[in-house]
Design a protein around this nucleic acid. Structure first.
Length: 255
DNA sequence: ATGGTAGGAAGCCTA
């Protein structure tokens, strides 16, 4: 089973790119982030025509996540548990072929001297609590998404340029490591020493200069990590016309 | 040191 993760930065603006990717990549499951539309605005017919089931957790203007799958999608959970007052659509989770799969759009957290940074850290605490609960199932779990965390300096073209940013702050990295230390595996880093990125800013010719960062991650429970057979970052979509600033990252599991 | 780009909503906010 091939599972991919892609922050599309508006599913409506990215529909041609999304159709290309679904047609060419042969992914069984695709976790999307930053839909930037309500559920009713999702281009459902176009995606269903390619053979995918769709579950969305949308929101007007900002955020919004979805799971697309060639297999039936069961037991959908919308919203990250732990704070009923949180109205931001950043989390959806469901079971596909016996694998519990989440699509995560973790808060950016900048600027760090505003309420945005504590919101990010609190959101990460809730994710940690929920991830702990999922581990007790002792079944394959895949937490995939835009984590807005650069785990280590090597995951950034120039660590100095990102010093002090919410994506590299020690608090953000520490909470990301808590997910690893409780038993989740960073699929990409576990599989290859290669330096590769998943995001290049639209500005300052970042793509042309390969000034990228690795912030989109698939974290695997032990039962999922045991089945991991391959990982990759598909850079082609970032170089195409009207691209997202993120590009897809994927894994294959031998279930 | 600053401002550069993209998307959505509506004449600014988020990234």
């Amino acid at each position: 089973m091939k599972i991919a993760c892609w922050n599309v930065n508006s599913v409506k603006a990215r529909l041609p790119r999304l159709i290309d990717y679904l047609t060419e990549s042969s992914v069984d499951v695709l976790c999307l982030q930053e839909l930037k539309t309500i559920d009713e605005g999702f281009p459902r017919e176009e995606v269903e025509a390619l053979g995918y089931h769709i579950e969305t957790h949308g929101q007007k203007t900002y955020n919004g996540v979805a799971i697309l799958s060639k297999f039936p999608i069961e037991d959908v959970l919308r919203g990250l548990p732990g704070d009923d007052s949180d109205e931001q659509a950043r989390y959806i989770e469901a079971t596909i072929n016996g694998v519990r799969i989440a699509s995560i759009y973790l808060p950016n957290g900048n600027p760090v001297d505003t309420e945005k940074f504590p919101y990010k850290l609190g959101w990460m605490d809730r994710l940690i609590s929920h991830a702990e609960k999922l581990l007790t199932s002792e079944t394959p779990v895949v937490l995939s998404g835009d984590y807005n965390v650069i785990p280590q300096d090597e995951d950034c073209y120039d660590a100095k340029a990102w010093e002090g940013d919410a994506l590299t702050r020690p608090e953000s990295r520490h909470k990301f490591r808590q997910l690893l230390n409780m038993g989740y595996t960073d699929a990409y880093r576990s599989f290859t020493p290669d330096i590769n990125y998943t995001f290049w800013d639209y500005q300052r010719g970042a793509w042309q200069k390969d000034n990228g960062i690795r912030i989109d991650h698939l974290l695997l429970s032990p039962q999922a990590a045991d089945q991991l057979t391959n990982v990759g970052i598909d850079k082609a979509p970032r170089g195409q016309e009207r691209p997202s600033d993120h590009t897809p990252i994927w894994i294959t599991l031998d279930l």
